[in-house]
Design a protein around this nucleic acid. Structure first.
Lengths: 187, 187
DNA sequence: CAACTACTTGAACAAGTGTTCCATAAGTTT
DNA sequence: AAACTTATGGAACACTTGTTCAAGTAGTTG
């Protein structure tokens, strides 16, 4: 093995992680070669060495962040989690993981303007539908939409909602008017 | 009256409108004194004369855009519009008014990081709740969340959904499991 | 007409930007 | 050890940025 390449890969990952921290703190607007390099503790030219352009770095970071979140989302939303489990995950997203969730929606917005990012931004939606194969697709799509809405509204609330406030709403969405066609059963 | 001030106000409005066009086209990232001035057909220093800082211009523009959209939203969502009416409005937002809707969510994201913008970003939500006084607040909040979710997901779809695709989802949300507590009656 | 006020605008500045370049260091292979 | 590849990092370039400034115009008021 080439030890140089191994350390290079490590540094590359460190740069991506630093970029994510910058996005979480200052948003996409705060991402510059210099701010990322400062955050990662590497010289200014390091990011350019590993990523052809700033845009590449930005996109690589947002896509990776989205994929990381994907698994957590699918673990609770898609696999027929209870309303409380889903509510707990949403509450965590708008409180402890606030910065990360904001980053997630920066990707959404970027994807709105750049078609090549759309697949990455939509990935959790596509995976959820594929994993669930819900009996009532309409109810399930309503749930998925509401999840995005609750998150983004939670981000602009004066005080972010907690699990207890979110739970009844999620519960309402999970137990549609006909329980037999609902995608999952809440508490 | 002072004709100078009148023309000044007109120019000020023209600058805000130009800024909105820039945001719709290139996003908040594309807003600079120079790009706005070019779009409005005024010299570079004109925006600085009317707005102390670029941030002031940006905020004034997004807040005004949000207030404009507010009325349209409330006219259909809040006043107990039918599912089809709501679906039609959503379809319009992600197709004809795509740029405007993207701008709306740029405000959301900015509000996520700047508390002073939150009231403006949340305005349509607050007004909707106040105007409706829904019998079932939980169902209504689910509907409002889903509206945001459907819009933002519509913006990152490969092909934006149309009225017919959105209508069943809205209908499902409006006629909850118990019609008597539903906020409004669909078709 | 003179004094005043509001608007207009080009030039300029310091700061920060993405990116290129190149000499050097460090590790790998022969 | 020599030849090579890969990684490193400082200096520099051309460019754009937000904002300031001062000189100018044109309306309003006394």
């Amino acid at each position: 093995m080439d030890g140089r390449r191994a350390r290079g890969e490590k540094k590359r990952r460190a740069i991506v992680e630093a970029t994510l921290r910058v996005i979480e703190r200052d948003g996409v607007a705060g991402v510059t070669h210099r701010s990322v390099a400062r955050e990662a503790g590497v010289p200014t030219t390091a990011p350019t060495y590993y990523f052809a352009t700033l845009d590449d770095l930005l996109i690589a970071t947002l896509v990776q962040a989205a994929e990381e979140t994907c698994e957590e989302m699918l673990g609770t939303v898609a696999r027929g989690g209870t309303a409380r489990e889903i509510a707990a995950m949403l509450a965590k997203a708008v409180n402890e993981n606030r910065g990360r969730t904001l980053a997630e929606y920066e990707l959404y917005l970027l994807a709105g303007r750049r078609p090549e990012l759309r697949a990455a931004a939509r990935r959790w939606l596509d995976l959820a539908v594929e994993a669930m194969r819900p009996a009532d697709p309409v109810a399930f799509r309503a749930l998925l939409a509401a999840v995005d809405g609750l998150l983004i509204q939670g981000l602009i609330a004066d005080v972010a909602p907690n699990e207890d406030e979110l739970e009844p709403i999620v519960s309402f969405l999970i137990c549609g008017r006909d329980d037999s066609t609902a995608p999952a059963r809440g508490q």
